[in-house]
Design a protein around this nucleic acid. Structure first.
Lengths: 133, 133
DNA sequence: CTTGACGTTTACGTAAACGTCAACTTTCCT
DNA sequence: AGGAAAGTTGACGTTTACGTAAACGTCAAG
């Protein structure tokens, strides 16, 4: 049977983050583990929370947004209001990422042509008439 | 005939940056305009430099890298050593951008499916059997 | 008893690229 | 002349996600 509680290093190792990072998330109010004296004790649900946090981070959300989404996720009444918030945030993030992708694609194109020009130039091919400025 | 000198606000307006930004670049050693007393006077070549800086920024280079590339661009001896540096930086940046694009694409995919799941859920469609965690 | 691993807190540091004052000095226009 | 407009120099603020150091407690193994 899987463990039902975890130490901070257990989680740190499992998810490949430092314990400092996990404590930091706690500072920001993203996780609230139990305490055995001073020592933090994480439940399965804490572990799930952390998983959600890291997932959000991968998707490019700010910790603040992640907090809001998770906070809204708990309440007994899962009336849909919470989900709406998350859905909207997701859509916003989606737009943001699409914009970024566009920018990056443009930059890549420009860079590729620059690289090509520079290579040509270094190989003594001046026939293209390109300026390097 | 076009002007041969520009004020800081001229350039700021033309390139849609604040004058503070231009002074900031100067602090970082990216531009060195003449002075008429205290007032900065930008030559055409300064303007070209600024253009290069902003281009580099668009392409995702750090100001430090931009500085190095521009510094190497001036010398009389255009032996190719300078260009090699720039070429390498460009290739590095290209790889970095490709990596970013990959990450973003993955995030977008995941987000799209999340958005779709959330929408379905909000519309009462529970047939998909998807979990929301 | 001692060593070492792991835990804790508080608090300041970092990196990037500027923004935002404040307090002047200089220049322009009427 | 005289006030507005424009320019200048510091210096500190902002944002995000942690890193790092100091200084100390705890607990099991040897």
């Amino acid at each position: 049977m899987d463990k039902n509680t975890y130490s901070i290093t257990d989680l740190a190792e499992e998810f490949q983050v430092t314990s400092r990072t996990i404590r930091f998330y706690e500072d920001k109010g993203l996780i609230l583990p139990e305490r055995d004296g001073l020592t933090r004790v994480y439940s399965r649900s804490d572990r799930a929370r952390l998983k959600l946090i890291l997932r959000g981070r991968r998707l490019g959300f700010s910790l603040q947004d992640i907090k809001k989404m998770i906070d809204l996720y708990n309440p007994k009444e899962e009336s849909g209001e919470q989900l709406k918030f998350t859905l909207q945030k997701c859509e916003e993030q989606l737009e943001k990422l699409m914009g970024q992708r566009k920018d990056i694609n443009e930059a890549i194109e420009e860079l590729e042509s620059t690289v090509s020009d520079l290579s040509d130039y270094l190989n003594g091919d001046t026939s293209s008439g390109k300026k390097l400025a």
